[in-house]
Design a binder for these strands. Structure first.
Lengths: 200, 200
DNA sequence: CGCATACGGATAGTATAGCTATCCGATAGT
DNA sequence: ACTATCGGATAGCTATACTATCCGTATGCG
C-alpha cells in the first residue's frame, strides 16, 4: 500500500479512505498484515482521482460510475448513470413548465426523454437567467444548442472508435465527466481570444 | 427583511448570513429595529442565488464577482474575475508542459494569455485523460475547441448587444457563470439524442 | 398606558464532506 | 529477540454553508 501511495502520489490515509468507501477494491491479502496491489489498482486509483479532482465528482457519485464501469451495463445505461453523476438532482416539480417548453423549442427534432438531467438542468438555467433580468435571447441559446450537438457528435464518434465494450464504457464515463471540464476550459480560452479580437 | 424573505423564498437567517458575508448590502435603517429593503435588494438576492445554486459558486467567489459588478471595471477585467471565480486554481508548476503544448496546438491562431484559467484547466483535463489510459485523440479535442469558439462568439455577440456598460458587465458575469451550466445541460440532452439516433 | 409580538443584529451551533491522525495487534526483516 | 512497518479500525479535524437562539428595541393593538 505504501508503494501504491508513492507511485500514485495519494496519501496512504486517503487510499484507506477510498477502500472504506468501496471506490478501490482491496488488494489480495498475502499474509495477515500484507496486501498486494498491482497495476489495476493503480489504474483505478488514477481514475478515481481524475473523476474527483478534475471532474469534481463527489465520493458517492464516483462510486456509482465506478460500479457501472464494473458492471455489464449497456452504453445507454452507462450514459444515464454518468450523466446523473455529474448533474445535481432537480425536481421537475419546482421548475416552471414555461422554461421546459422553451428548452424543448431549442431541442426540436432531438430525441430526448422528458427526465433527461440535461433537459431539466437547462430549464433551470433558463429560469435563473430570467430571474436576474436577462432578456432570454433565443439566438444565444440556439447557438449553445448547436455547439452542444457538435460536442455530443464528437463524443459518440470517439466512443464508437473504441475497440470493445469495456473500452467504450470507460470512454463514456471519462468523456462525460471530464468533457464538461474540457469544454468549460476551452470556452474560457475562446472567450479571451474573441474578447481580445474585438477590443484591441 | 421578512418581506424580502417571503418574496424571494430565501430564509431570513440566510439573508442575514449574506449580509454578514457582504454579498447583500444592508437595507437603509429607518428606525433602530426596522430596515427598508427595496427591489434592488431583491434583484441582488436573486442574482446571488443564481450564482450559488445554479452556477455552483462558493460564497467567496460570489462575493468577488458581485464586487466587480459594483465596480467600474472594464469588460476584459470583468471577464478575468468571472472566469477566475468559476475555475479551480491551478498551479502551472504542477502541470506537464507537454500537456500545455498540446492545448496550445489546439488553440493556434487564438490570442490567449499563458495564465488564462481555461488554458490551464484544459491542460489538466488532458493530463487526466492520459492518466486514465485514454488515447488522446486530436480530432476529438479539436472539435471541442471548435464548439468552444462558437459559444464564445455567441457570448460576445450577446454582450455587445447590451445597451450600456452596467448591462454588459452583468451579462459577462451571468453569461460566464450560468453559461457553463447551460452548455453542460444541453450537452447531456444532445448526447441522449445522438445516442438514440445511433443505437435504435 | 401596557404588553405581546416582531424587528434587526450578534453569536453560537449544526450538518455534511473529505480527508487525516492515532491506535492496535500481527508480522517481517536483522 | 526486537524494532520497524504493515493493514485495518476508529476517532478527530477543517472548511463550508447555513440555521437557531438570544437580546435589546420598538411598534401596533386594546
Amino acid at each position: 500500500m505504501a508503494e501504491l501511495s508513492t507511485t500514485s502520489d495519494v496519501p496512504v490515509a486517503t487510499i484507506k479512505y477510498y477502500l472504506r468507501e468501496k471506490l478501490l477494491p482491496a488488494g489480495e491479502s498475502e499474509t495477515a498484515n500484507q496486501a498486494r496491489y498491482g497495476s489495476p489498482h493503480l489504474d483505478r486509483l488514477r481514475l478515481i482521482r481524475a473523476l474527483i479532482d478534475v471532474g469534481g465528482l463527489s465520493i458517492a457519485s464516483a462510486r456509482s460510475v465506478l460500479e457501472v464501469i464494473d458492471s455489464d451495463a449497456s452504453l445507454p445505461e452507462t450514459f444515464a448513470v454518468a450523466q446523473h453523476s455529474v448533474s445535481v438532482a432537480i425536481e421537475p416539480s419546482d421548475l416552471d413548465p414555461a422554461d421546459l417548453d422553451r428548452i424543448d423549442e431549442l431541442l426540436v427534432g432531438w430525441h430526448v426523454s422528458p427526465n433527461n438531467p440535461g433537459r431539466l438542468a437547462s430549464a433551470r438555467v433558463l429560469s435563473a437567467f430570467r430571474g436576474v433580468g436577462q432578456t432570454d435571447d433565443r439566438g444565444w441559446f440556439a447557438r449553445y444548442a448547436e455547439a452542444a450537438l457538435l460536442i455530443a457528435t464528437a463524443d459518440l464518434d470517439e466512443i464508437e472508435s473504441r475497440p470493445d465494450r469495456a473500452a467504450k464504457v470507460e470512454t463514456v464515463v471519462v468523456g462525460t465527466v471530464l468533457g464538461d471540464a474540457l469544454i468549460s476550459g476551452l470556452r474560457r480560452a475562446a472567450q479571451e481570444h474573441v474578447t481580445s479580437e474585438r477590443f484591441s
